[in-house]
Design a protein around this nucleic acid. Structure first.
Lengths: 128, 128
DNA sequence: CTACGACTTCAAGTCAACTTTAAGTCAAAG
DNA sequence: CTTTGACTTAAAGTTGACTTGAAGTCGTAG
């Protein structure tokens, strides 16, 4: 499989795939006339990367998933460890979104005649 | 009020305040010996900016809030219009977080012996 | 032979929202 | 007079995850 095919299958740009290889989260691809060719195990690897991205892991965390454990550490243990941190992070982000929602609703109650007045009210509220 | 006082009151760095001024979402501050001095109305303005940031608005959207409407447009109308877009965006982000949560939970069911196997399963699942 | 399309590398650019740095000004304190 | 500390500016750097651009290589079709 050529890089453009892989890109199509995974919905990625070829540049992204090269980038993943460059930063070392994909192993160097086999070459045919200097061009990358991908076999099943390369696809499996990329599938893991993509799933991890969808799950919210950063590329750095994905590197950790692959290389941050003693060789032979089983995947469940790896995933679990990374998940712990991620779930906490997720909760934080949920809270943040909920705060934003609350503030958005409060915005709808604005009856001010000028933006200065908004600022005044915000400061008054905050100092209490 | 000097810039450092304003920064302390608002929990911002002075550099952030200068930056806001630079990009035009804060009006040029009055000067005393070349140094910025802030009066009430400047504080009100910054309060609006900060509240909008907390609410999830980008600096670009805040610029819109201040300058993207015909002069004299009352704040409620301004806020409302921006809120509409933002609420939709918020829903998208919530959905994304919920997907991440789902995927995180699924990760916990991993029983694979090697990461390659994870990739294989992901691809099998996806093709169905 | 040449043109084409797809690939290659490496460096640099992009985005948002700031921060950091370098070099300079100023007023008050010692 | 000099030092100190807070301020000033403009420009460059930061972050993460890529993308884009320039310049070059390859195999194939005409």
């Amino acid at each position: 499989m050529a890089i453009s095919d892989v890109a199509r299958v995974f919905g990625l740009r070829t540049s992204a795939i090269r980038y993943y290889e460059q930063i070392g989260i994909l192993p160097p691809a086999m070459r045919k006339n200097g061009q990358r060719r991908y076999d099943k195990s390369a696809l499996f690897c990329l599938a893991v990367v993509q799933r991890a991205r969808e799950t919210g892991f950063t590329l750095e965390e994905i590197r950790e998933l692959f290389f941050g454990f003693p060789a032979g550490t089983p995947p469940p243990k790896r995933w679990h460890q990374l998940s712990q941190r991620k779930i906490a992070e997720l909760r934080e982000r949920m809270k943040r979104l909920q705060l934003m929602e609350t503030l958005l609703k409060r915005v709808e109650d604005c009856r001010c005649d000028a933006l200065d007045e908004c600022g005044e009210k915000i400061l008054r509220q905050r100092s209490r």
